[in-house]
């Protein structure tokens, strides 16, 4: 609230501080990992795998972090949408096996696209129901919110068992996406390439919406100060429900990718990713999409390099990463300005 003297304040052009330091972190980690891994091909493979994994985690985490930013709602049931998205896709892909097994990239991608669309629409609608039934009654009550969304997760996981059965299901990749392009002795797995492409597309799309559209401006303003957005005459609740649905749909999309990546599917598939997702949004700064993107890459890199160097401590290394980041910046890499 304090201000510089009027004359200088209105004359001086303020400095726009570009905070690039966190962006150097993945580069630093990759550089440190290289001599430890010791082999260029392996290092490249690990790095690409990390990017693919990071993009999938980002797709899942982006909606969650925005939902939190906008309404202070942390949805512990987010993992349910990951699993349900994957199961919906599986349900679509099974009757389309003719297309997925065909030796045609176009047919393969078409089948996959259909599956993804069904998964995203299905989880988006479920997100709407989840918001109404589970989240809405406990706005502003953090403790109940955590408990109730966790309860929603339990119920959703059990319903998956009821509907699709409890066994582990295979999730086969379409023919054209199996295998890898080889460049010399370096193999570039096709599916990883697809995952990176999808992740980048989602990131770019979100950035355009958030920076170039009125809706995006409203979301960003709402993350900062939802009360003022209301005082300007906008209904934040409607905005929030929309973001919640979009976030759920993205989790569904991410779930499809994740299940294809692991090539198997269980009802608890969401739970395993969610731990990483939480680490990512804490590292990135709750509510920040850019931070979430960077955090996802960081977490995936750490996970992949460490999994190669010392497989037993992969997840623990991510905890250490989180601790280190929080000691450096207690609100995450890119903290969101909050009122």
């Amino acid at each position: 609230m304090t201000s510089a003297p009027a004359t200088t304040a209105s004359d001086a052009i303020p400095k726009v501080r570009l905070d690039l330091l966190p962006i150097l972190l993945p580069v630093a980690i990759a550089a440190v990992a290289y001599p430890l891994v010791g082999n260029l091909t392996t290092w490249l493979t690990l790095t690409i795998a990390a990017l693919a994994m990071g993009m999938m985690i980002f797709v899942i985490a982006s909606g969650l972090t925005l939902v939190f930013g906008l309404m202070d709602v942390l949805n512990f049931g987010h993992g349910a949408f990951i699993a349900i998205g994957a199961y919906l896709a599986m349900t679509v892909l099974i009757p389309l096996s003719g297309w997925t097994q065909a030796d045609s990239l176009a047919l393969n991608l078409l089948a996959l696209l259909l599956a993804v669309v069904v998964a995203a629409i299905g989880t988006g609608l479920l997100g709407w129901a989840f918001e109404r039934v589970i989240v809405k009654p406990v706005y502003g009550q953090h403790l109940k919110q955590i408990l109730v969304t966790m309860g929603g997760l339990i119920v959703a996981e059990q319903l998956i068992h009821v509907i699709w059965g409890g066994d582990q299901k295979p999730m086969t990749l379409p023919t054209a996406l199996r295998g890898a392009f080889t460049i010399g002795d370096f193999a570039l797995e096709k599916f990883r390439l697809l995952a990176v492409a999808v992740g980048l597309a989602v990131f770019a799309g979100m950035m355009i919406v958030l920076n170039r559209t009125r809706l995006g401006l409203l979301i960003r303003a709402g993350v900062e100060n939802s009360e003022m957005v209301e005082a300007l005459g906008y209904r934040i609740r409607r905005l929030f429900v929309g973001v919640f649905m979009a976030g759920s749909a993205l989790a569904g999309l991410g779930g499809v990718l994740w299940a294809l990546y692991r090539e198997t599917l269980t009802a608890s598939i969401g739970g395993d990713v969610m731990v990483l997702v939480f680490i990512v949004i804490i590292v990135g700064g709750l509510g920040s999409v850019g931070g979430c993107f960077l955090g996802a890459i960081l977490v995936a890199m750490t996970a992949n390099y460490v999994a190669f160097l010392a497989p037993k401590v992969a997840l623990a290394s991510n905890i250490l990463l989180m601790v280190a980041v929080l000691m450096w910046r207690p609100q995450g890499l890119y903290p969101v300005a909050k009122r």
Binding site: A221, V223, E224, N225, E227, A231, G233, A337
Partner: peptide
């Protein structure tokens, strides 16, 4: 609040509440 705002009242809070990121 949104309805009141749409009815023609504008509010400048003590904290100013400008959107710093915008």
């Amino acid at each position: 609040t949104p309805t009141i705002a749409q009815g023609g009242i504008a509010y400048v809070p003590e904290t100013m509440a400008v959107f710093a990121d915008l």
